[in-house]
Nucleic acid binder design. Sequence first.
DNA 1: TTATATAGTTACTTTAAAGTAACATAGGCA
DNA 2: TGCCTATGTTACTTTAAAGTAACTATATAA
Lengths: 119, 119
Amino acid sequence: MVKKYNISVEATLEVIGGKWKCVILCHLTHGRKRTSDLKRIMPKITQKMLTQQLRELERDGIVNRISYNQVPPKVEYELSEYGWSLKPILDSLCAWGNIHIIKEYGDKSLMLEDNGLND
Amino acid sequence: MVKKYNISVEATLEVIGGKWKCVILCHLTHGRKRTSDLKRIMPKITQKMLTQQLRELERDGIVNRISYNQVPPKVEYELSEYGWSLKPILDSLCAWGNIHIIKEYGDKSLMLEDNGLND
DNA sequence: TTATATAGTTACTTTAAAGTAACATAGGCA
DNA sequence: TGCCTATGTTACTTTAAAGTAACTATATAA
């Protein structure tokens, strides 16, 4: 077998890398969410990307998918126990981002959408 | 002006996202490195990607570029003071990656290159 | 019976990231 | 003179990620 990683951080990036996964996971650290909740909180994500990213996170054991058998469908997503082990990382990524935004733009309210989670 | 971020973690990803930046930064947490050192430690990175990523990290104030005026050239890179503020994040990304590799493959020595930094 | 609501899929296109290979620099040394 | 070194650049190609738009399913309520 060929060694896959130069350094272990690459394994983490395989799981939470890309444009959307960290964003989704940060929102899920504030509690279980329906698909429609996630779409409302992240207005710019498309249905396709949302499902795709959630599927991959589910495959990697990071989130649980809870499907209620009803019509119209109701599906909720939450961090799994393993997913919660990412909480300190997600928190510090957000915290550093806040500092960086203030450093770059002076005022974070200018750059962050008003979704009730940026206060 | 249009709000740029849904949540602050996106600002962080703009700085350290992509395939190489976290890897480069993790190596730099072990000390100042010449370009040739970095190429040796990361054999799969190309000259172009290495320079490109370092330039962006420099532009964002994360690394310092130290150029000795001599021929053949000698250039060193190190974390800036601002870059060092990422150290806790980089460390926890690596630590989580180790755990994840062990969870997925049982033995991390099977997956990590022998570059002297994975022990 | 027809419209509604929610979650998801599919084929396709666009955009962005990464990789390749050849070239540039310039002082020292054989 | 001409080659070596280390670092970096450029034009181009390839690959991967993300986005678009149209489609599906189906119990319930109007």
